[in-house]
Design a protein around this nucleic acid. Structure first.
Ligand SMILES: [Mn+2]
Ligand SMILES: [Mn+2]
Ligand SMILES: [Mn+2]
Ligand SMILES: [Mn+2]
Lengths: 222, 222
DNA sequence: AATTATTTTTAGACTTGTCTAAAAATTAGT
DNA sequence: ACTAATTTTTAGACAAGTCTAAAAATAATT
């Protein structure tokens, strides 16, 4: 059995993993297809292949879920992805909205020594530039403990811990508004009508939509 | 015309480039096949494809050579390969015999910003860990001016500038003999029978075969 | 429960890159 | 110059990954 996977196979495992975080149910063919911007028929073919390699559990019409072996591989890829993102931002002057596409390529480089040395070189970072947790060598992840900013009540104070949406447009919006990881945010007012909120952040007052607030992980202060 | 090449296409261009350094003639199908460890029939197919893309000149039975566009791409890949090798040795504790396979993967990462920032981060290195010249941003290369150690006469002194053979076994031999880039070498005696030589290097006397001496670039002193 | 709508799978085709075996062209040897 | 050896190309096949269109299964409606 060939244990060396193609980039495509790795991307499928990663997609199933990230779709599995929100639910404990099997992931539908369509969901995977949408995530990978491919067709359902292609997904069926690939899932069968991964099932033969015992990396996913699969029963016809029942969707897919990762086996222990499949999950271990997915986590390793995510680890590499996030370590590279840290490297790009910390050492190569990339902005947090510029790293993802390059990391999508770098995550497939195969060299355990490289990953290990990169981790050490970066001084064992625990989170990537978007606040996402970096799995350790053994595949353990500290999942986001944070709640969403949208759930914080008026007059409460919180700290920005991460972004849920990592698209360039969202990150650029945050940059232009001065919102960054570690920023202290106070909820001054919540508008009942549309759930928008007026917040105090980085020395300024700002009105943000619920859409924005739902994509920011925060840690509530006391 | 799609300008984004596959890794395979890039490897063919690189192979033709490196085989072209030794000669000004077109490169034979067989030579490419051997270099890439593939079959001649596969090479013919790919050369046709690259010819359609105007990256190689090709006439049936006449071998292949790079067009200006093809050469520019090949040089960019070699630049990336060597920059990554420098990074791995300088920052990630890789030995010079460990970098090649990883660099073979990293050279295909597509991001001009990445290449440019990496170059800057490494402080614009001119040579890789094996002494090979790194092309600059515009594709200019300082080819090895050096001669081979095998051509140095008895009683002459030279400095090790690079290795021609970068296989792990050769590099490990050099490590075990204390030979490294920058080492000063004095030729004490040349054996006429087999062209082996007795040299003084890094404070010790050493006998090396012609095979060894033919794979070391040196700069003659004075 | 029967019919519709949606999701998923299958069947067949296409692209990329590879291979083997055979044919064609070139090169070498006499 | 002719034959033999070598190199190169072609023809046909295969694996990986993708797609479209049609069939089958499941889920939602009435
Ligand atoms: Mn990312
Ligand atoms: Mn990230
Ligand atoms: Mn190399
Ligand atoms: Mn090198």
């Amino acid at each position: 059995m060939n244990l060396d996977l193609s980039q495509t196979e790795e991307n499928y495992l990663k997609a199933i993993f990230s779709l599995s975080i929100a639910t404990s149910k099997a992931i539908s063919t369509n969901a995977i297809a949408e995530k990978l911007e491919t067709k359902a028929s292609s997904v069926t073919d690939m899932i069968k292949k991964l099932s033969d390699k015992e990396l996913v559990h699969y029963k016809k019409y029942q969707g897919a879920s990762l086996t222990v072996a499949g999950k271990a591989i997915a986590v390793r890829i995510i680890r590499k992805h996030r370590l590279w993102e840290v490297f790009l931002v910390k050492h190569l002057n990339f902005k947090w909205d510029e790293v993802h596409d390059v990391a999508e390529q770098l995550e497939h480089i195969k060299s355990t020594k490289l990953t290990q040395q990169l981790d050490e070189y970066l001084e064992f970072p625990t989170h990537d530039p978007h606040g996402d947790p970096i799995p350790d060598e053994n595949g353990n992840i500290d999942f986001h403990t944070g709640v969403m900013l949208s759930s914080i009540l008026a007059s409460e104070i919180a700290i920005i811990m991460g972004v849920k949406d990592s698209t360039s447009s969202f990150l650029k919006y945050l940059d232009s508004s001065g919102i960054k990881l570690g920023s202290v945010v106070e909820v001054l007012h919540k508008e009942e009508f549309d759930n928008s909120m007026l917040i105090q952040i980085e020395g300024q007052k700002l009105s943000i939509s619920q859409q924005i607030a739902k994509n920011l992980y925060v840690k509530k202060q006391r």
